[in-house]
Structure formats: structure tokens, C-alpha cells
Amino acid sequence: MRRSLVAIALALVSVLATACGGGGGDQPRELVISAIPDQDPQKLQRLYGALSERLTRTLGIPVRYVPLTDYAASVTAYRRGDLDMVFFGGLTGVQARQQVPGSVPLAQRDVDERFRSVFVASTASGLPAVTDVAGLREVGGRTFTFGSESSTSGRLMPQYFLDQAGVGPNSFRGPSGFSGSHDATIALVTAGAYEVGALNATVWDQRLAAGTVDLTKVREIFRTPTYHDYHWLARPDIDDELGAGTTGRVRDALLGLQAGDPVDKNILDLFGAGSFIATQPANYDQVEQVARSLGLVQ
């Protein structure tokens, strides 16, 4: 008993010694990346090895992927410089760019160029499909749920279009809910907990195709105009840290992923993308304006 305690104490001392002294200053600098996808996030967050290996191979520098779930956490880590490049949503990308001025949007998915949200309503609510944004005024006085607080397609843009139709945050019956995810929104409207909800149109289409939606209980009532959503955002200091031209090479690596190549196809599938395409800061001006008007960007 005594001897085993001594052995454990020794082990503890040696582990602590490495913990204090470790820090590892000599390790080669890696490119640290992350992503907060909102459709089927578990795929990417569990199988990210494919992406980091592919990028490591193309770029010749070690690439490490950090699986984060929390929007605020990823923006904070990005601001600190702990993350070099992140696949942000439209809103979080704007917020991150504001906190790290000079950040560069590198690439977006093909679908992000023409992103949409859908409003879905329970059939029991009796709400008819509406044809234009103004028609959303019907949602006033109903119970309503968004998705996650920081989601562009599940919260920001729906709130914006509702605003346009004259439906403010206090115009629902009771406070709005935040279901936490697009699938939860579908489930809660199906259950009738909320009469109306808004979510990412891609997720809705996928669930329809998969046949998991009970169309006798929930149906689409409106599809919003398009906006730009997800994109890869890189810190401005990558070139200084990892060598001149790194930003460009990372962008080329992303844009160069080919749907015809099985490895690349696998990665693109994890993102729900056909390909990555070029983008530019101006694409997010609309999102930024909306975020500003709703107080989500200072």
C-alpha cells in the first residue's frame, strides 16, 4: 500500500513537471482551423481528420482541426489568435471580422451564394403559404421559435424578414423560443409547441428528401430571398506567422477540392457542398447591416 502510494506520488510529480515546463515552445507552428456547421454538424465534427490531413498534404504545413460547438467560443478563440481560420456562419463571420479587423473571407460553398431560410408552420395553425415578405405579417400574434441564437439562417435573416413585414421581436404570442438547432425547430413545430418556426432551407430540403418530415403536421409557408451565409475566414496575420503567401495557398487548396476526386468528394460532403468557390467581403455587407440593425453587431 505504502509502496504503491510512493509510486503514484512519483508519477504525479513527473506528470506535473511536464505540465508546468512543457508548453512546447519548439514545436513547428501549425495552422489551426475550426468550423461550426449547422447542418448535420456531427459528420464534420467527428470526421474532421479527412479535412486536416488533406490540407496538411497540400500545404506542407501541419494543419490541426479543433472541434468546437459554441459560436461564442469559436469567435473568442479566433480573436485571441488560437484559431487561424474558421468556417463561420454569415453572422459569426461578420462578428469575427469586426473583432479582428483585416480578416479575409477566403472561400464559400457553392450553396452559400444563394442561401435561403424557410418559414414552416404547423398545419393545425391554419396559416396559409405566403408569397412575399410582406405576407409574413400573418406570423404576428402566433407562437414562434428561432433556431440557435447565433445562427444566420435560423435566427438573423428570419428576424430581418419578419422585421420587414412589421413583425418585431415582441409581436409573437409569448416570447419567441430558441430551439437550438434546425432539426429541433422542425420537431417543435411538428409537435405543435410553436405554431411557426424558421430554419435553414437546405436542412429542410434534405429532411423532405429523406422523408423524415410529417407533412400532415408541418408545412413550408415561405421561402426567403437569398443571402450569403457560411464562409472560411482567415486571420490577417497568417502570412507573418506561417510564411508569406500562406493565405493564398490555403485559398487555392480550398478552391481546388474536386468533386471528382473520392477523397475531396468525401470532404465536400462533410460540408454539404458541391465545391468551394471564391468570395469577397462585400458579399456580407447585407448580413452585417441586418446584424447591426438588430443589435447583434456593436
Binding site: 475550426s34 456531427q42 465534427q45 467527428r46 468546437l68 437550438g180 432539426d183 429541433a184
Partner: peptide
């Protein structure tokens, strides 16, 4: 742990819950 990318059961549970993958 999901805040620092360490994984863990809570993280996996939250991920599966997002898509309402009940078996997971």
C-alpha cells in the same frame, strides 16, 4: 469541454441532439 474542442460525452450528446439523432 465543447468550448475548448476537447470533445467529451456532453459534446457528442449535444451534436447528436442537434440533428435529433435519438439512437446516438
Amino acid at each position: 469541454l465543447g468550448l475548448i474542442g476537447a470533445g467529451g460525452l456532453g459534446f457528442q450528446l449535444a451534436l447528436s441532439l442537434q440533428t435529433l439523432n435519438y439512437p446516438e
